[in-house]
Design a protein around this nucleic acid. Structure first.
Lengths: 243, 243
DNA sequence: TGGACAAATCTTGCATACAAGACTGGAAAG
DNA sequence: CTTTCCAGTCTTGTATGCAAGATTTGTCCA
């Protein structure tokens, strides 16, 4: 099991902890989610863990292999395409019908873009992953439709899993530029352009995937055995900022 | 508890049985879903019933009132607006990007429209409700994105609950005409028109709602005490076919 | 007659126990 | 040395038991 131990105390719901761990890429697709370990970690019985798993399963975030265990979903290449297709439709539709940006929304978006810049500068990979997904959720929130926001939240989680599976390097600057362009279009009060930019942005991200890549069943082991080039003090983010 | 006893034997999963009951309007919003009764009905323990409830709760189809019980969701007026808003975005987006209709798809759609006509003629209300929702799910299936299909399936279930709460009469013919128009536009290979028609269709349905209506807490009792004007041999469908 | 209180009964919340399939490791046989 | 098999151990699947809050109903008192 991966790094779930950094979650706040057991006040957090189990669902949220797991989704958060995915949204910030602290947990990999295919990671095992042992009922016993989660139960111990949250100081509850397996019953509640299972209930959380059932909810997450309904959201396509975890899957169960009968009598073998629960695992963080590993979206197939086909599923990946469908997720991006769904996001294109939903996000472009949201932006197209987006009302005029309120002052506070504009402020919040700018603050978010600034956060992205800082995370890129600080080479804080987890935070960056989190922010990159959160941007789209924020847009949905501003659009003011909680139903679609909820849908997008799940799709974002799945997107992150997809990225982790099929994307060798994160083109953070490219994504950041895309976000900036969308915000600019919104501020120019041109929702049609914003929608088009969102589609292009998602296209770019999808094109950055290598959907022919077979998932590596040894990935876990490989990671564990490698001397930690992932140390935070090193400069692994050079790759990430690479565009 | 309402009419869930007509479900096929316990081979059916509990989730599916409940969703089916909603999709065909055999069960009302706000209906109580007793764990014990469901457990007895499906000859399983409460554990499995609870797991099904957890999954359905994640899909916003049932809600739990702590230590009071599980109930079929009663979407608020605000939620209703958001659901229709979400459907407008998703369905119009789907139609706009819909590929050219294959022969078998065209055939299937025509068969569906014919089914609608028959259900209207036979005044089969349950079947009609089912078909009306199913039309949109079929479109999504033809569009070929299972992710969005799944989302729409849940939204359709919620739409039916909304209709049952806020719609006094079902304008079946109007809806049927809308469906026909959408199919015609698709056959004319005009996805843009199909998308526009879908938006208008959903607008019409939403406008047919009375979102100011307060839910009647005595509805159940009222229904039970009234001498059955709802008898199948009577002609209640005259109201339904009313446009 | 009306209202307040309390016991009885219902509901879910949660933990636990046990069953059964899947995996692992080692021993035995070829 | 390789392969096969089997026991041990781990996993989830499911049922059950008990606790605690919510509701109902009956009773008593004013």
């Amino acid at each position: 099991m991966q790094d779930l131990s950094t979650v706040p105390p057991q006040l957090q719901s189990i669902d949220k902890a797991i989704v958060d761990a995915i949204l910030s890429a602290r947990i990999q697709p295919g990671a095992r989610l042992s009922e016993n370990q989660l139960a111990a970690l949250f100081s509850v019985s397996r019953t509640r863990v299972r209930e959380a798993m059932m909810r997450l399963e309904a959201r396509c975030i975890v899957t169960v292999s009968p009598r073998r265990g629960w695992f963080v979903s590993e979206p197939s290449a086909e599923e990946a395409r469908h997720v991006y297709g769904a996001r294109r439709i939903i996000e472009s539709g949201l932006l197209r019908t987006m009302p005029c940006l309120k002052a506070e929304d504009r402020q919040a978006l700018h603050r978010h873009l600034e956060d992205e810049r800082q995370a890129i500068a600080a080479a804080d990979r987890q935070r960056l992953t989190c922010l990159m997904g959160d941007f789209h959720i924020r847009l949905a929130e501003i659009a003011g439709n909680p139903v679609l926001t909820e849908v997008l939240r799940d799709l974002t989680a799945r997107t992150i899993l997809i990225s982790l599976m099929y994307q060798s390097v994160v083109h953070a600057l490219q994504s950041h530029d895309g976000h900036c362009a969308i915000v600019a279009a919104l501020e120019a009060n041109d929702p049609e352009a914003a929608a088009a930019l969102a589609i292009r942005h998602l296209d770019e991200v999808e094109e950055g995937l290598d959907l022919t890549r077979r998932p590596d069943p040894l990935a876990d082991l490989r990671r564990s055995l490698q001397p930690d080039t992932e140390a935070p003090s090193a400069s692994p983010m050079l790759k990430i900022i690479n565009r």
